[in-house]
Nucleic acid binder design. Structure first.
Lengths: 192, 192
DNA sequence: CGATTCTTTGAAAACAGTCAATCTGTGTGG
DNA sequence: CCACACAGATTGACTGTTTTCAAAGAATCG
């Protein structure tokens, strides 16, 4: 299971085999079944999580009890509640699996060790976080400026691998529209 | 003008006077008049910008030519196009002043010098970026889960200093609703 | 003042949400 | 292999919210 990560990381940065071994030694592989949580609202997020296989999602529950998907994380994506991870406060996010999945977990302590020992990894992490911020900002722009149809188009462009893979009602939840609306948008969209 | 920053930063981290002097030496203070740009779409963002006085805003222009405000930055806030700053690609954001303002600018090169020489500052910057990400994520959640009225309430809570200070139609642009709608929301809201 | 800029209001139209029913495909257990 | 349950998707009718357009009323500034 670690091989997936190894392939991923060595395409991004150069690591010698001792470093790779160290990173491997400090991580915990985990199989997660569909619907299984790796983080629940109220718990503290202690881990960095890399998705090796399958697909995870992070969502928050609104005042009225509705689930709102904050983001999807298929293979090669990282997912966690950064806020809780950084502050040690209870998480607002729930993270669970949409499919049977395999993830790699590094605790905060272990991840800090890695960052200290392998500066490349620290820099790489910063780059990931910077990109996450950029895409969050991009998404804000899209949600405040686009119609339901445009949002769906943008989603397909951004996640061409996902829009057939995850249930429509979850995409609707991610986009902030009702599933009925998205269903109608999509059927019109298909007729073009 | 630097005193504002000095007060701000020494409340957050401990710096000796040599360090403060160094930071001061590498920065450029700038007065910006209302409506004046410090960054325009298409240019590359080379600076870190700290608002010492007044209020700045970052916005993007949609396909239909409408302005959509990405964020406000009153006193003690940082503002820039991080994406362009990091990648060197043309900025998508415009940043201009809503009031006559005073800002402190550090070029990327100078800021890197500071970060290298004063580790505390590097760490501090990371903390700022992490918080920006958290609040971006919070905002995503709000925009996809709340009604116009709730968004306005959240805005007031988050920016109690701003909602009387910046024009209503800009708050509307920030929230992703029309100014007319926000005007109506607010008048209903006032009757409670 | 006169000219912007900003806000408000009304009425109609477009849009999205809700409710309820139906339809589809998948998988499970008898 | 069938029957059934279940999760997901679709459709129609209705409701409610938001946008749009147009006009007029405040407020601010040179």
């Amino acid at each position: 299971m670690f091989e997936v990560f190894e392939k991923y990381i060595t395409e991004k940065i150069t690591l010698n085999s001792a470093e790779l071994q160290r990173i491997k030694a400090l991580c915990t592989p985990k199989r997660v079944r569909k619907r299984q949580y790796i983080l629940q609202e109220g718990d503290v997020c202690y881990n960095n999580c890399f998705v090796a296989k399958g697909c995870m999602r992070a969502y928050r529950v609104g005042d009225d009890g509705t689930e709102h998907i904050i983001r999807f994380a298929p293979e090669h994506w990282w997912i966690s509640d950064r806020e809780s991870y950084n502050t040690g406060l209870p998480a607002k996010l729930n993270i669970d699996a949409l499919e049977d999945s395999e993830v790699l977990l590094w605790t905060k302590d272990n991840y800090n060790l890695i960052s200290d020992e392998i500066p490349q990894m620290a820099i790489f992490t910063q780059r990931i976080l910077a990109k996450s911020f950029d895409s969050a900002q991009q998404r804000i722009f899209e949600t405040i400026s686009q119609t339901a149809e445009e949002k769906y188009e943008s989603f397909i462009k951004k996640h061409p691998d996902l829009y057939r893979r995850v249930p429509l009602h979850m995409i609707a939840s991610y986009l902030g529209v009702s599933r009925e609306t998205l269903s109608r948008v999509r059927s019109q969209y298909a007729h073009k």
